[in-house]
Design a protein around this nucleic acid. Structure first.
Length: 954
RNA sequence: GGCCGAGUGGCGGAAUGGCAGACGCUGGGGAUUUAAAAUCCCCUGUCCUUAACGGACGUGCGGGUUCGAGUCCCGCCUCGGCUACCA
């Protein structure tokens, strides 16, 4: 019998699309025929890192989702930009080089070739002429160019935008200090700047990591230990953009959860800075008077300790202060008696890695400095402690502790027996009991009304905050402040396989860098990686591999001065920060993207990728984009208008069954657990065993159950993340070989909502393949080795019912595709195929429409059927089918009739029946009539076309 | 601890406040076949009940709003993701 043969059909159409450049995007949207107004859709995938393992099934999930949308938009007359490329710098290729001596470029190119082959085999409608790799010199010359833009920029706070570094105003006092001071001042304001800072050095990976790449004290990649050590590093001043990165989220069509993640990461919090007096006690009033009426000073000065708080309303409850061990005032505040103990504490703290700090976080530590501060609002004297639960890097590195209303302070105060003073009482309408709060068993951290706060008693928290802040401001003792968790971005890596910095470090006569750094001129780009660098596997120092570069690369003479190249390279994030711009104009050799092209295609209309990039990549890319926007290189303030995160695909369900006390495994196909905790295990429908669960497990599902009676364990429906070690990895190549690319695409979209986490199920792939076979047979004859049309397919008009099914399908599929609800769109098409397969006459026009609807999902089989239905051209640009509401109308409908809200019967009524007719029909229904017998109808709810409900009494 | 999301049959999942379980998988039965595959048809939430019909219960738990709640509100529980001494 003739059967759909994917391997032949798919190869045929992939070649056709390639030969005809079917999916080439026009230079400008308006270059597309019949598109004068320039309708466009820029649909972007997060480009993959071409690993040695090849694609996993998670890649095609997002890629199919975007591909369906692209094909849909093309058929709707939009110019579509749908490119693909490679995020190809990265550590694995370099580590491979260390092991084997094979150059990272060779490994990378091999992996790219494999990825390219796999993606081609899935029939994605990419414009392959726009393919880029971040490792191409022609690409990263522009990454270097953009770095220079950052390097040559400073952030003008008042104007909220970046400006050229030449325009940085130099204060007079700096000018008077001389050229060196001016240079340092300028360098300190660049968006790319150097610091000598403690960094996260990972000996195992041979590199420094960004804070974001260290998770719980170990490296995110590989989980290797990370130690803190000082090193000269390049930083990018992303913090300057914190407020814009936060504010502009509001206008983006991103999920609330990703927005929340980014907001969380930026960590904006509004509060107040307040100065606590630390000078001689008798001079307190003098100090206050001097401050009064003057603006809050830029720096606290020697006689005050500055804190940041989000709860200035609790100032009256401050019973001690804490400064971070690294705070610059520690020495000054430590009294001779406390010196030894404080120094020891600081020493201990400096040894603690992030891991230790996290691990030890359960128990708070700290020591008293011996000094006291005076509370500016009431003159109360309070002790100053040093403790590492206060971070030097946040706020001012010092806090006022209000143990009654902060959990951490409460813990600390309890541990060290420090006073706890309540200053907030629960609001009268709150659920918290005032008595319990007053007992002080925990910190009361919610809002409420002020108590024990002098003249402010009775003020609600928010009002109090505003009032006290403005009072402090007038008194010159504090001011409203906004703080961010976001830190500047550590932008240098001790790698070979990354973009070299386009920078030269000036050398003194003794050959040592003197601190002067000059940028290369854009005309000197690209700066390629040198040949002849050896990879030393035994290297365990932070020295970058490029230090081993040949002198001819490393040293440069210019204007009689000697320079050495910067030997750090950029992090992998660099290339992915702007790739979406390069796709638009990938061959341009005079600029990274032509402004006319950028204006026409930006922003990205739909961006789909994994949630693992919800913070870092998206934040970094937005940051670069905003810098480019400030300088007019791009036309929109945000790069990605709509973002969707595909959910992870888990491995197949592993077990279903139970293990008896003696270790024997009994497999079951189903386990039913009732509310009393009785579990029945079934195999092929027949009950195997009934067991009683331990009470704690009642109501759980997909979990381990412990039995109450013995120690055997029931496990069912366990599905875990795919990983090599678990041996549950599904290789897309195998699926394509067995079922075809269309089936893989269709299955991944049918599994469930795009954003949900879902387990793989190989039988499900078979299921969608069955659907494709069925669709094929609906149109093509079953005769052996014939591709003639099925005899049922005829050139006739659809009858009324067929027409209704057809138009319902068009409508549902169209709306579902728009919403990316692909799983339900596919279900609607299955219903269509189920219906028409049973029809003995199948109008050819309906079959053609169906093929068009199917084509974005399963493009190969659709093209084949399209051509068998008589077309000579690709269907990629056929107009998307439209539906008529008229055709959807049914003459008669069935509606439910309820009595007291319970379904009692169904009645058939004309679709256009009005309320009275509907009610009468319901009353006439025999079952309803019988039930209403002898009862009083108190209320009738009649929704024409929907339902009837009678509320009765008696 | 904080933020975000989720909890519906044996499984993946459908359901603008209006017939819970679309569609698919699994399982069962039947047709076709020498047989199998493939294909086609029927059944497949639980319980009670019937010759046939039918009935009760049912969307994590407890309340509430409503003629009517998987859906809205309040309070919990469990699971997942992210984050974590951020003042």
């Amino acid at each position: 019998m003739s059967k759909y043969n994917p391997s032949v059909v798919e190869a045929k159409w992939q070649k056709y699309w390639e030969d005809h450049k079917t999916f080439a995007a026009p230079r400008l949207p308006s270059d597309l025929p019949n598109n004068p107004e320039g309708k466009k859709a820029y649909v972007l995938d997060m480009f993959p890192y071409p690993s040695a393992q090849g694609l996993h099934v998670g890649h095609p999930e997002g890629y199919t989702a975007t591909d369906i949308f692209c094909r849909f938009m093309r058929m709707n007359g939009y110019a579509v930009m749908h490119p693909m490329g490679w995020d190809a710098f990265g550590l694995p290729a370099e580590q491979h080089a260390k092991k084997t001596g094979i150059h990272p470029r060779i490994t990378t190119e091999k992996n790219i070739a494999n990825f390219r082959r796999q993606l081609h085999a899935l029939g994605f409608s990419y414009d392959w002429d726009r393919e880029i790799a971040t490792t191409d010199v022609d690409y990263f010359r522009w990454t270097q160019r953009i770095f220079l833009i950052l390097f040559n920029a400073w952030y003008a706070k008042e104007q909220k935008r970046a400006r050229p570094i030449d325009e940085l105003p130099i204060p007079d006092d700096v000018l008077q200090e001389g050229d060196d001071a001016v240079r340092r001042f300028v360098d300190d304001h660049r968006l790319a700047y150097q610091v000598e800072a403690p960094v996260n050095w990972c000996p195992e990976l041979g590199t420094v990591l960004a804070n974001e790449e260290v998770v719980g004290g170990v490296s995110e990649r590989g989980g290797y230990p990370v130690v803190r050590m000082p090193l000269r590093q390049w930083m990018l001043r992303i913090t300057a953009y914190a407020d814009r990165l936060e504010e502009d989220l509001a206008g983006l069509d991103w999920s609330d959860s990703v927005k929340a993640l980014q907001r969380n990461w930026i960590g904006r919090s509004v509060g107040a800075e307040v100065d606590f007096y630390i000078g001689p006690k008798d001079k307190f009033d003098e100090w206050k008077n001097a401050r009064s009426g003057n603006p809050f000073p830029r720096k606290s000065g020697d006689d005050a300790l500055r804190v940041f708080t989000t709860r200035p309303d609790t100032l009256f409850g401050a019973s001690y202060m804490v400064i971070a061990p690294e705070h610059s005032y520690v020495e000054r505040l430590t009294t001779p008696e406390q010196k030894e103990i404080v120094e020891e504490y600081r020493r201990q703290a400096s040894f603690k890695s992030d891991l230790d700090r996290t691990d030890l976080a359960k128990e708070k530590t700290g020591v008293f400095t011996g000094s006291y501060a005076m509370n500016p609002v009431n003159g109360v004297q309070i002790p100053i402690w040093v403790a590492d639960y206060v971070l030097a890097s946040y706020g001012s590195g010092a806090i006022m502790a209000v143990p009654a209303h902060d959990t951490r302070d409460f813990e600390f105060a309890t541990l060290f027996n420090l006073p706890i003073k309540q200053v907030v009482a629960p609001a009268p309408d709150s659920s918290a009991s005032p008595d319990e709060v007053a007992k002080m068993e925990t910190a009361f951290t919610e809002k409420g009304v002020a108590v024990n706060s002098g003249e402010f008693d009775g003020l609600p928290t928010d009002e109090f905050k505003t009032l006290i802040t403005s009072r402090l401001e007038k008194a010159g003792l504090g001011r409203k402040t906004v703080n961010y968790k976001l830190r500047d971005w550590l932008f240098s890596r001790q790698h070979f396989w990354g973009e070299p910095f386009p920078l030269l470090r000036e050398l003194d006569s003794d050959g040592k860098p003197n601190g002067v750094v000059i940028p290369l001129d854009p005309s000197e780009l690209p700066l390629d990686l040198p040949e002849g660098v050896t990879f030393d596997a035994s290297k365990h120092s932070p020295e970058p591999p490029l230090e081993n570069a040949p002198d001819s690369w490393l040293y440069v003479e210019r204007n009689g001065k000697k320079y050495k190249r910067e030997t750090n390279t950029m992090p992998q994030w660099a290339g992915s920060c702007w790739y979406y711009l390069r796709y638009l104009d990938p061959k341009n050799s005079s600029t990274f993207v032509d402004p006319e092209i950028e204006r026409a295609w930006s922003p990205v209309d739909l961006y789909i990728g994994g949630a693992e990039h919800a913070v870092l990549h998206l934040l970094y890319a937005r940051f670069w984009h905003k810098v480019l926007y400030d300088f007019g290189y791009v036309s929109k303030p945000e790069p990605f208008q709509r973002l969707v995160n595909q959910g992870m695909i888990l491995g197949e369900m592993e077990y279903s069954g139970f293990q008896t006390a003696d270790g024997a495994w009994v497999s079951a196909s189903a386990v039913e657990v009732d509310k009393q905790g009785k579990a029945t295990l079934k195999s092929d429908g027949t009950p195997l065993q009934t067991i009683k669960l331990a009470p704690k497990d009642v109501g759980k599902s997909g979990e381990n159950f412990t039995l109450a009676s013995d120690s055997s364990i029931v496990v069912l429906g366990k599905s875990e993340k795919m990983s090599k070690s678990r041996g549950n990895v599904i290789n897309p190549d195998d699926v394509v070989a067995q079922y075809g690319a269309d089936s893989l695409r269709l299955y991944e979209m049918f599994m469930g909502p795009l954003e949900a986490v879902k387990p793989w199920n190989q039988d499900g792939v078979n299921g969608v393949r069955n659907f494709l076979d069925r669709a094929w047979r609906m149109i093509i004859t079953s005769e052996y080795e014939s591709n003639a049309l099925n005899a049922a397919v005829q050139d006739v008009e659809p009858n009324e019912e067929q027409n209704r099914v057809l138009h319902k399908t068009i409508k549902a599929v169209t709306e579902d595709v728009r919403n990316l609800s692909y799983n339900t769109a596919i279900a609607r098409m299955m219903e269509f195929a189920n219906f028409f397969s049973r029809e003995s006459v199948r109008p050819k026009s309906a079959m053609k429409t169906f093929v068009l609807l199917l084509s974005p999902f399963a493009p190969h089989i659709a093209e084949e059927l399209w051509s068998l239905l008589g077309a000579t051209n690709t269907l990629a640009y056929e107009p998307w089918p439209t539906w008529s509401e008229e055709a959807l109308k049914e003459s008669s409908i069935t509606i439910p009739v309820q009595i007291n809200g319970k379904l009692r019967a169904r009645v058939d009524i004309p679709a256009d029946a009005d309320a009275t007719a509907t009610e009468n029909a319901a009353l006439a229904e025999p079952k309803i009539a019988a039930q209403l017998q002898g009862k009083t109808i108190v209320k009738k709810i009649v929704v024409p076309g929907k339902m009837v409900n009678f509320v009765v009494k008696g």
